[in-house]
Design a protein around this nucleic acid. Structure first.
Lengths: 108, 108
DNA sequence: ACTTACGGTAAGTGATGACTAACGCTGACC
DNA sequence: GGTCAGCGTTAGTCATCACTTACCGTAAGT
């Protein structure tokens, strides 16, 4: 399982995307992240575990609190993965469009 | 639910990613896509439905067959979504790194 | 009209995974 | 040492969803 796979699986959940968004907006401790969300703190903790495994966030201890921050690594992984699809998709799309144009011409 | 949400939900499944990859590699009909995969043809059909809703693929009828092709729209949507995170993540990351550097300096 | 190939859909089942409640651990403060 | 706050983890439940089987509609060939 590549890192891109992990990231896509991680971001495949709506709640987890919300957690990730809150971390990115500057939320630090698990409590702060969970506050205002409609899921319990342990749930957030589990989501953070998945996000961390996907290299989307990093954590570090500060006293009894645990501060989370965004990790660009995971984002870079999907980004690269997507770019690959993007390029090949564009090529295929252009080819298909031209194919269509040829057919269109033949019809007349 | 935005298009980016749909795409991320769609790509959150491993099998669906495989289907998408096969379409992108040039597979056209549902049969061709299903051949060699370890799931049945109806399963592939359902996955294609989700991918289509997320604007990741397009379909068009040709006789009794239905040809699928990659649709760049959905990819563009996640790409934009990711780019937003990417930029802000970099900023936050740099800030954090500098914060760390400051602390490091103070320690000495 | 009959048959065959192709594919979408409905219904039902099974498995994955998201969530909560309860517990245990650690660091800070008294 | 005792207490409290902050988190991770476990066990167990519940819901979501991926998958299969069976069925039906449609287009092409005979």
């Amino acid at each position: 399982m590549t890192n891109a796979d992990q990231v896509l699986d991680a971001l495949g959940d709506r709640t987890r995307r919300a957690v990730f968004a809150r971390v990115q907006r500057g939320a630090r401790s698990v409590q702060e992240i969970a506050d205002g969300m409609d899921v319990s703190r342990p749930a957030v903790s589990q989501h953070l575990k998945v996000l961390k495994a996907a290299r989307l966030v990093t954590d570090r201890a500060e006293g009894t609190r645990r501060l989370y921050a965004v990790d660009p690594t995971g984002i870079a992984a999907v980004r690269d993965w997507l770019d690959g699809f993007w390029d090949e998709a564009l090529v295929a799309f252009k080819a298909a469009a031209e194919q269509e144009a040829v057919k269109e011409r033949k019809r007349r």
